[in-house]
């Protein structure tokens, strides 16, 4: 019984962390069709901002939930203005430029923080269920993921900004004809996506020691979750995060964490091989702006 409870929490945690890792990319890639290979680095920037803020004496929750997303959103705006803005609709060039960004940020973080592991301790202590110890912080991750999904659903479906953003992504020409400044909407959407990446990186930072190259661990997971999810942003995010989370945990429990990771990636390759369409149709629609 205790084991089942612990395992249930572990499975939920795996799914929740996948949702967190992929949410920012789902906005930037799923909505804007910008292949942001620097997504992982946006995440670790969120983590580094959190660690720096905590070391300066800020409350850890404020640092994670407010400061990190804002800081990364700011970085996102700068990146969008300087680089991404020139490359909308040029799929491969965007991929290459964001890969350059990824390397640039890795280098930058190495220069600032050094090529060593930095980290903070988890702010919520663990507790025991029967004979098993469980990490209390897992519940926080699950909570953040649930709130995040709810907030995204509400903003995208019920608010005016969500409507305008979705409209602009679908038909920028019509949105412009209706008097909306599409340039600024793109910028704002990219900033929101960056903020989500920053939040994810910040919230996950206490669980992993950060090194400048940590972003690489997230990028593959984020992409396969978003791609496998397909055109329906939120439903896709939830379904594919659940699928991959369960696969990952199953193999982690039965064999080892490394095999769990490998199984996740192999499952993704097989899944994409079997279900390549539906996503592609949406993906190759020409942007007419």
């Amino acid at each position: 019984m205790d084991l089942i409870a612990v395992m249930a929490v572990e499975f939920l945690y795996a799914v929740a962390s996948l949702v967190l890792i992929s949410a920012g990319l789902a906005v930037v890639f799923g909505m804007m069709r910008v292949i942001n290979l620097a997504h992982g680095e946006f995440m670790i920037l969120g983590g580094y901002v959190t660690i720096t803020a905590v070391n300066l004496g800020v409350n850890v929750f404020i640092a994670m939930v407010i400061i990190a997303p804002l800081a990364v959103a700011l970085i996102g705006v700068v990146v969008e203005r300087l680089v991404i803005r020139h490359l909308y609709g040029r799929l491969v060039d965007t991929m290459l430029a964001t890969w350059g960004l990824s390397l640039f940020f890795i280098g930058l973080v190495t220069v600032i923080f050094g090529n060593t592991t930095t980290g903070i301790s988890t702010p919520i202590p663990g507790f025991a269920i029967g004979d098993y110890r469980i990490n209390g912080y897992s519940f926080f991750i699950i909570l953040v993921a649930v709130l995040l999904l709810a907030a995204m659903a509400v903003i995208l479906r019920t608010t005016r900004f969500g409507l305008i953003a979705r409209g602009t992504m679908a038909r920028p020409d019509i949105a412009a004809a209706l008097g909306h400044e599409t340039e600024r909407i793109y910028m704002a959407t990219f900033a929101v996506g960056s903020a989500l990446s920053g939040l994810a990186g910040a919230v996950l930072a206490p669980l992993v020691g950060l090194v400048p190259g940590s972003g690489a661990a997230y990028i593959a997971k984020a992409f396969i979750t978003v791609i496998a999810g397909g055109p329906q942003l939120l439903a896709g995010l939830m379904s594919s995060a659940t699928f991959f989370g369960v696969v990952n945990q199953l193999f982690t429990f039965t064999i080892s964490p490394v095999i769990g990771e490998v199984a996740l990636l192999v499952a993704a390759v097989i899944l994409l091989r079997m279900l390549p369409r539906g996503i592609t149709g949406r993906f190759f629609r020409e942007r007419s702006s």
Binding site: V83, W99, L101
Partner: peptide
């Protein structure tokens, strides 16, 4: 200067200005 930083910068600049 960090090696990776320079490589990243070169990639971005080439894509933007010398595609």
């Amino acid at each position: 200067i960090d090696n990776t930083l320079v490589m990243g910068l070169i990639l971005i600049l080439v894509v933007l200005f010398l595609p």
